[in-house]
Amino acid sequence: MPIHEKSLIRKEDLRRQEHLVLEGVDVSGDWSTFIGARVLTDYNERLQDEIAALPGGENIHRCWQCGSCTNACTVNAINPDFNPRYWIYLIRLGMEQELLRDKEIIWQCVSCHKCTYACPRDVVPEGVMKATAQWLELKGHVPTNPSMAFDEEFSAQVFATGRIEEGRLLRRFFRRTGQPLAQPWLVAIVRGLVARLPVGLLARLGLAALVHPRTPRWGRVRRVVHDYVETQNTRRRAALGLGPASKETAP
């Protein structure tokens, strides 16, 4: 049985019929949608509200499926499976299982905002992509992606000390993402620094790496920032029906 539209075939839907005769015609072989029909049996009515509760997802309910975002999209031009319009449809109608099929590509949005400027309803699809990526992560459907891991390490350090110490940030990021510290490009940068920077500055950099200095009077600011971040996180997690985060975001 020839199936012309290969992209529509899903492995899990294939049915092998060793001997199937319908109305006297032998139709044995691999069957796709004809026998194992892909029936949608329910809508998850919470899905749209959950995405809308995350930053960037607020306007998702406005979408009227015109496709302007998808046809303006940088990533879609390279990978036709990257389709913001389609995912927004799935989310709005609560087709969670269909959405999860694409969980490995949703985060690939490069935040170029071409979609934002094309959208006639001001949905801000870029924001929806961001919210959806966060939703996938919070719900545990995908591991924290490297860029998110970097953001988390970065924020955690700012929250703790009011400063960024690049060496420490990189070390922690590489450790967390299981990458070796001795990246050739990094080694080259460090060599360059050592060769060119004045000795005094090098000494200060080295000292900072050891003692983690804080911004003066950071304590009070830290508490305020910490409280704010906690409130936001708890609110988001609650909107997704999740309890408080297991790991703390700040000391």
């Binding site: 499926q65 015109c66 496709g67 998808t70 046809n71 879609n76 031009a77 036709p80 389709n83 319009r85 389609y86």
Partner: peptide, 8 residues
């Protein structure tokens, strides 16, 4: 994008 066939 032809939205019904999900194709550019």
């Amino acid at each position: 994008e032809d939205t019904l066939v999900k194709r550019p």
